[in-house]
Write a protein that binds this DNA or RNA. Structure first.
Length: 271
DNA sequence: TATAGATGAGAAT
DNA sequence: TTCTCCTCTATAG
């Protein structure tokens, strides 16, 4: 489930499993054979995340950069690692376990300068201690672009994806199509603070839960919902179902090539 | 068994 | 805007 919280978990898992240790690297699928050969036998110095980008630094100062995209996935396991199954782009293995990477959007080795270039084009990350909401507000507060699109733009805010953007706008009662410049500073602060809370909870739980206890289906006398992405949410992929708060029918529309979900009752039109 | 769709993003048009 | 990358899962038949 690759939104930012997932990648921060992956960084922590890399750190725990491989940090300060020598690793064996291979590309069973073959598409990262050259890069894996360069990493093979190196000490993994530090694993870090900025938004949806995983950055793993080795003792030659090169950094492995992984972006999962929609499809990418990591599987961790205990050693001895079994024979790789399917298209494993990269396998790291150490004394404490192994990590298999499949289907990433990006898997490459970066020189130190490249890492700076990458990070410079990313906005602040609500999950990072250095994440500064003011930096994002400079973009948001001037944009004619709908806030729902701005929240998916990783150069504005790094980390949130389609689920968090839908859910945070619902929780703040904000019309997704409101242009950024028409938000108040307080509304932006509310969005940012809620992202910090929700995404930190996502890192801890390994899933996206955004529904307050009093709105859980059980508390409303309804059966619990089964949802593919693994968490309890207000509007994401709930089109046509009643809003957990006001009962209005949750709506969906395609916006900037992504599915947007919102509740017309709780997020009344402000455009 | 086949098909559509998905939590993303960069390039091409 | 549309295409393309790449893999897995849910759903339809």
């Amino acid at each position: 489930m690759p939104e930012g919280h997932t990648v921060h978990r992956l960084a922590a898992e890399h750190q725990r499993m491989f940090g300060g240790r020598r690793v064996a690297a291979s590309s069973p699928q073959g598409r990262f054979a050259e890069g894996a050969a360069r990493v093979d036998g190196r000490v993994l110095v530090e694993a870090d995340a900025h938004g949806k980008h995983l950055l793993v630094r080795f003792d030659d100062e090169r950094t492995l950069h992984v972006h999962l995209g929609i499809y990418g996935k990591y599987v961790f396991g205990a050693v001895p690692a079994p024979e790789p199954v399917g298209a494993v782009r990269l396998r790291l293995a150490g004394a404490a376990g192994f990590a298999d990477l499949r289907g990433p959007n990006a898997c490459e080795l970066l020189e130190p300068g490249d890492v700076k270039v990458l990070r410079d084009r990313l906005g602040p990350d609500p999950l990072r201690a250095d994440g500064d909401p003011e930096v994002a507000w400079r973009r948001v507060g001037r944009a004619r672009t709908p806030i729902a699109v701005l929240l998916m733009d990783q150069s504005v805010v790094a980390g949130p994806g389609n689920i968090y953007r839908a859910e945070v706008l619902f929780r703040r009662g904000i019309d997704p199509r409101l242009p950024g410049r028409r938000l108040t500073r307080e509304q932006w602060a509310g969005i940012w603070d809620d992202l910090v809370v929700l995404m930190a909870a996502g890192v801890r739980a390994g899933r996206i839960d955004t529904v307050r206890p009093e709105h859980m289906p059980e508390a409303m006398g309804r059966p619990p919902r089964v949802d593919g992405h693994g968490g309890e949410v207000y509007v994401y992929r709930r089109a046509g179902l009643p809003c957990l708060v006001c009962g209005s029918e949750v709506r969906t529309v395609e916006l900037a090539a992504r599915n947007l979900f919102w509740c017309p009752g709780c997020q009344p039109s402000a455009v």
